[in-house]
Design a binder for these strands. Structure first.
Lengths: 190, 190
DNA sequence: GTCTATATGTAGATAGAC
DNA sequence: GTCTATCTACATATAGAC
């Protein structure tokens, strides 16, 4: 209920978001988040009961950010095809981060798949959001296999990020981005 | 030089290989490897100075295994196109592991990208081996952009594994495998 | 070569003063 | 609400007996 406390809570989530992305969830300690925020370790337990709860808040925050990004794609582009093309731009917009740390959603999903717990389900929610939005765009263009196309597009972008990150290759991202846009056009034009 | 020691060394590498794949490198402890092999923790330091050295040995072991797999592709298929198609079969051959833990090479590369150390370079060696072999196959078919096609194929397979693992979807692997083989044929036939 | 005991650091989590 | 001190567990790594 406190106003000051909610501000601190958000600062913890923001710092954890960045650290989970750059170092991984398991490799990020409370001390790391404390160093990044200036908030003492012990204080975290006033806002979150466990580290898992911080992860849940981070995933929720990422989903909110993604929703904002998708809304911007809708407002800045007229048709569904143009929105899909705009969506793929995030490959190049975030290319430096992609080269260094991969995709925030993809790498988190891969990391959490290795824990036997139910953590991966949480990270999957972000993929589901994208999958549904992309499917809606393909559906709006009258394509019957819209869900398959949606997952295919996500797989293309995930594959590019994994290889670009593995080989630290910026040019490869640019080339692949063009190929992906060509693929979208080939599926949605005519 | 001891013969018994080398046997134990290999048992450590084999157990670490499996654990690094299923739980991740950072999430695998010496105790885990000890439990899997029956070899006491302290004994590991007779064979490896650090945990990083175990990882190096695991990557070397994986590269050896991959080389064997590629040699089998060459012996079991006549032409380069058939060898490429046979290579992609590993998607379905290992589909249960892929669903559970992703790709051993891709997930290790993604995990090590998050450490600021030089560990990722080691894991990249496995990707380089595949990249060169695939390039040789495309080159043998007279294709000029053989290296690009090689990375494109690796990206396709990485993308499929990431999505299949995220959504735990076996059918998606089967469908994508067919699409990948169609893509290879479209590039190499005529 | 093999194993036990242990050193040293740090992880997540808790208790309780203020 | 905020912070310090601390608990317990477990990590990598080392020392040294056998």
């Amino acid at each position: 209920m406190g106003t000051k406390g909610e501000g601190n809570r958000q600062r913890i989530v923001d710092a954890a978001d960045s650290l989970f992305y750059r170092r991984g969830y398991n490799q990020t300690s409370f001390q790391d988040i404390s160093d990044a925020t200036g908030i003492p370790r012990g204080n975290f337990y006033y806002y979150f009961k466990t580290k898992d709860e911080i992860l849940e808040a981070v995933v929720s925050s990422r989903i909110t950010d993604l929703s904002t990004m998708l809304a911007r794609c809708e407002s800045e582009a007229e048709g569904a095809r143009e929105r899909l093309l705009l969506f793929t731009d995030m490959l190049e917009v975030n290319r430096d981060d992609v080269i260094k740390s991969g995709c925030p959603i993809g790498t988190l999903s891969s990391e959490l798949a290795k824990d036997e717990s139910t953590l991966q389900e949480k990270s999957r929610q972000a993929f589901i959001l994208l999958r549904h939005w992309l499917k809606d765009q393909f559906s709006a263009l009258g394509l019957e296999n819209a869900d398959d196309l949606s997952v295919d597009l996500l797989a293309k972008m995930q594959g590019v990020t994994v290889m670009a990150c593995a080989f630290k290759d910026v040019d490869y991202i640019k080339r692949s981005h063009i190929e992906i846009k060509d693929w979208i056009n080939s599926k949605t034009l005519n």
